[in-house]
Amino acid sequence: MRRVLVTRPEPGASETAGRLAEMGFEPLVLPLTETVPLHPAIHAEPVDVVAVTSPNAIRHAPQSVFDALKGKPVFAVGHRTGDAARAAGLNVVDDEAGDAERLAVRIDGAFAAPAHITVLCGRVRRHVLETGLRAAGHRPRLVEIYDTLPLDPSESAIRSVIGERPVDDVLLYSANGASQLVRLMERSVVGTNLAAATFYCLSERIAGVLGQDVAKTVRIADFPSEDRLLFLLKT
């Protein structure tokens, strides 16, 4: 049975582990980042459309945010984000983008500039969405819902998850998680157990963080979604 290391934050890590177990893999859950709420206040301002960049922007949002945006058209970055937003009572009209670049394009195609766009996002981000929206003449208002913090598991915690046997595959969902993994691989226990692993990355940007030493063992999803990442793992 192939042993697959899951590095994404909880609760997504456990959700992924469940999917892996159903697929016949042995999941090893070792989150390398965590998300924490920022408790933002949302003020009464014009809103034409809402953009949501991650399920975490829904998971950590206070009810006051949902109340303020009730009935507004919502563009979610992907299906999982869209499902989370619908469950929170938001009016999701589009969740097909897949990434921030495409999300900006889809919103711009649906709304004439200048549209007032409330963006529910994390503090740690690439600023791609708001940059694209501003370049198209729109007026994004950023509401930072959560922060992403690095985790540095102890040697004993790592051993309790990985054990002494080699890891066959590693799933990487973010550049932050990849950066943490690179640091951990400098430790003998992690580097040794991952020496022959294949690294499955959600994007080329994430793969680039790993560096040239592991480039030959990297595979990149053809679309930035977990479904495509797990499909790649199976092939």
Rank of each mutant, 00 (worst) to 15 (best):
M185F: 04
A195N: 08
S174R: 06
L181A: 00
M185D: 03
A178L: 02
A197R: 05
L202D: 05
G191T: 05
A196F: 07
E186F: 01
Y200G: 02
M185N: 01
R187T: 09
S179M: 12
V190D: 01
C201W: 03
R187C: 05
A196S: 14
T198G: 14
A175M: 09
F199Q: 08
M185P: 03
L184E: 04
N176L: 11
S188V: 12
L194P: 07
V189A: 10
G177Q: 02
N193S: 15
C201V: 03
G191C: 03
A197E: 05
G191I: 02
V182D: 00
R183G: 05
S203F: 10
S179T: 13
N176C: 12
Q180H: 06
S188W: 14
T192R: 14
G191Y: 02
S188P: 14
M185T: 02
A178E: 03
R205H: 13
I206N: 06
S174V: 08
V182L: 06
V190W: 00
A195V: 10
F199N: 03
R205Q: 15
T198W: 13
S179L: 10
L194W: 08
T192G: 12
T192V: 12
A175S: 15
R187M: 11
R183T: 09
I206H: 04
T198Y: 10
Y200D: 11
L202S: 04
I206P: 06
V182N: 01
A195D: 12
A178S: 06
R183Q: 12
G191A: 08
S188Q: 15
A197K: 03
G177K: 02
L194F: 08
L194N: 04
N193H: 14
V190Y: 00
L194A: 06
R205M: 11
R205C: 09
R183E: 11
A195E: 10
M185I: 05
L202Y: 10
G177V: 02
G177T: 05
A196R: 14
I206Y: 06
E186Q: 12
R187L: 08
L202P: 08
R205E: 15
S188M: 13
V189F: 08
Q180F: 01
A195Y: 05
N176D: 14
L184S: 02
A178T: 04
A178F: 01
T198Q: 13
V182S: 00
N176R: 14
V182G: 00
A197P: 06
S188R: 15
R187Y: 09
A195F: 09
R183N: 10
G177N: 09
G191W: 02
L184R: 00
L184W: 02
S203V: 09
A195G: 12
V189T: 11
L202F: 09
T198E: 15
Q180S: 01
Y200V: 07
T192C: 11
F199P: 03
S179E: 15
C201E: 07
E186V: 04
E204K: 14
A196C: 10
A197I: 10
